[in-house]
Structure formats: structure tokens, C-alpha cells
């Protein structure tokens, strides 16, 4: 009896057996690579107006150039006796057919903002309204004065500090963080945002003296962004352990790596789990050993 002919199966190369226990290299992980923001998304009426003006000027310059190009082309065509080129059409901004209407910063018209500017004078750096919210940016040294005014002034009367938080702006020059205070007036049904811009190392005055509820919010800001507040009763970490290194919500803090334990399949003596992991990753097109550098 002759044996049935078995078609030759193509040789699949065995996955390489790893030498040691498989350890994911977090230092080389793509998520470990930090992409620092390039812009400073700090809402501001002045910046917005400057941007709009620059865009309008660029648009105008482009239109003038188009017309000049047309004139030269027309003259050339006339000289050569060809048909005249089509006159240029000024491009109209495209209208999107959707239910979105981007809220842009607007001039401050609200009485509260005007009152703040009247009382604080030159200490107010900017006031504007956006998306129905009032923003008042004050000088970083006079935040306590502004908070006291908001709390005690009979016309303002903001009783409650709803929220206090900060944002990291590594790309900015002159400051590194913005600290925002969201105040609520329960009796007048109004909200107000106070904002200060703080450079690295500057210690803004604590709001605890005016709003005792700021205690934990400022501890959280210190914990997450590393802004220390002057005269705070208890400037310690709140969410992270006391010996934690770094400030997680800064933009230069990686999402993967710090404080994360390496995964080693210690129980996997025969290397089975490792092989499965590598195989599965291979099917998905992921090279676990050499993660992409981008």
C-alpha cells in the first residue's frame, strides 16, 4: 500500500523563544513618549481679535494678489492674441450645515465684570464673555483682593467657591499655569470665573481665608500640578501618596511608565504565556519587543 500523498505544508517559522521572562519595556512604549503641546490654548478676547485681524489681512492680501495675477495674465493673453482668462472670484467662507455655532470671545457687557474692573482698576488684566460665561483675569498678586471683593461686595456677593483648578501651559512664555476660580452667587444666580496666570515657582495667595472650601481644591492642585499656595493651612498631597514624585497633570508627565509596575510572567515557567502573547501581538501587527518609536 502506498501512503496517501500529503501536500507539503509551507514551513511556518517558529516564533523565537524569548531568552528571559517577558518584560514590557515601558521606557520605549509609544505612550511613554510625550508629545508636548505646541500652542497655548488660553481663551482671551485680545488674542482672538488679533487672530481675526491677521486672518482678514491675509485674506485681503490673497485677494489683491489674485487680482494682480489676473491683470498680468489678461495683459499677456491680449498681447498674444489669445482668449482672455476668466476673472477671479473671491472665495466665500464655506458654510457648514450642522447644529454647531462656535462660541467666540466677546466684549464684556455684564455688570459684574464692569464692576470688578471699576473696583480693581489696573489689577484687572482682561475681561470678556464666552459661551455665556464671564471671565475676569486679574494680576496674580491681587487674587486675594479680587476674591474678597467678590465675596463681600454687596453688588457682587459671590457666596460660594464652586471650583478651583489649574491648567498647565508649557508652550507659553511668561507663565506656566493658569489657575481658575469658579464662583457662584446663590442669591443672584450668577457664575463668574476669575483667572490668574502663574509662572513656575510662584506661590499664589490661598483662597482659604475667604472661602474655606478651597482647602482641598488647592491641595489637589498642588498634588496634580505642583503649584504651592502661600499661607495654606495644610499644603500636602491629597490623592497621590505623600512620597509620589512628579505632578501627574503636567503635560510633561507620561501617561504610561511612572509608578507602573512592570509585568513579568513570573509563574510562567515554560514560557507558554509569553509565546501566546507574542503570537497574538504578531497577528495584530504589534512588535512587542521593539515598540514603535513615533
Amino acid at each position: 500500500m502506498s501512503e496517501p500523498v500529503v501536500p507539503e505544508t509551507p514551513q511556518v517559522p517558529e516564533p523565537e523563544a524569548p531568552s528571559g521572562p517577558y518584560v514590557y519595556d515601558y521606557a520605549a512604549s509609544p505612550q511613554r513618549q510625550i508629545v508636548m503641546p505646541k500652542t497655548v490654548p488660553l481663551p482671551s478676547l485680545r488674542t482672538y481679535q488679533a487672530e481675526v485681524k491677521a486672518a482678514a489681512e491675509a485674506d485681503e492680501a490673497k485677494w489683491v494678489k489674485m487680482q494682480a495675477d489676473f491683470e498680468t495674465a489678461k495683459a499677456k493673453a491680449e498681447a498674444e492674441g489669445k482668449d482672455a482668462p476668466k476673472p477671479p472670484v473671491r472665495p466665500v467662507p464655506r458654510k457648514d450645515d450642522n447644529d454647531m455655532k462656535t462660541p467666540w470671545p466677546q466684549e464684556a457687557k455684564d455688570a459684574d465684570l464692569l464692576r470688578l474692573q471699576e473696583c480693581l482698576g489696573a489689577k484687572v488684566e482682561e475681561i470678556f464673555e464666552q459661551a455665556g460665561e464671564l471671565t475676569c483675569q486679574v494680576a496674580k498678586e491681587s487674587i486675594l483682593e479680587a476674591l474678597q471683593l467678590c465675596r463681600q461686595d454687596a453688588q457682587l456677593n459671590y457666596e460660594m467657591l464652586a471650583d478651583e483648578t489649574a491648567t498647565h501651559y508649557p508652550a507659553a512664555t511668561g507663565f506656566a499655569f493658569s489657575v481658575v476660580y469658579h464662583l457662584t452667587s446663590i442669591s443672584r444666580r450668577k457664575r463668574l470665573r476669575l483667572r490668574i496666570l502663574v509662572p513656575e515657582g510662584f506661590q499664589p495667595e490661598t483662597a482659604c481665608a475667604v472661602y474655606p472650601g478651597a482647602n482641598w481644591m488647592e491641595r489637589e492642585i498642588y498634588d496634580m500640578l505642583g503649584i504651592r499656595f502661600a499661607n495654606h493651612p495644610d499644603m500636602t498631597r491629597i490623592l497621590c501618596p505623600e512620597d509620589w514624585e512628579g505632578y501627574p497633570l503636567r503635560k510633561d508627565y507620561p501617561t504610561v511608565g511612572l509608578g507602573q509596575r512592570d509585568i513579568a510572567f513570573r509563574e510562567d515557567r515554560g514560557g507558554m504565556l509569553e509565546r501566546i502573547a507574542l503570537q497574538k501581538a504578531g497577528q495584530l501587527g504589534i512588535n512587542l519587543k521593539q515598540p514603535k518609536a513615533d
Binding site: P43, N98, D99, M100, T102, P103, Q130, A131, E133, R191
Partner: peptide, 13 residues
């Protein structure tokens, strides 16, 4: 809405 939402510089609470 468009499929991908791209923000403008804005802050809201």
C-alpha cells in the same frame, strides 16, 4: 454634527 469634532480655543465650566 461633523464626524470629528475639532475644538476652538475655549474654556467652559
Amino acid at each position: 454634527l461633523p464626524k470629528i469634532l475639532k475644538a476652538e480655543v475655549n474654556e467652559v465650566y
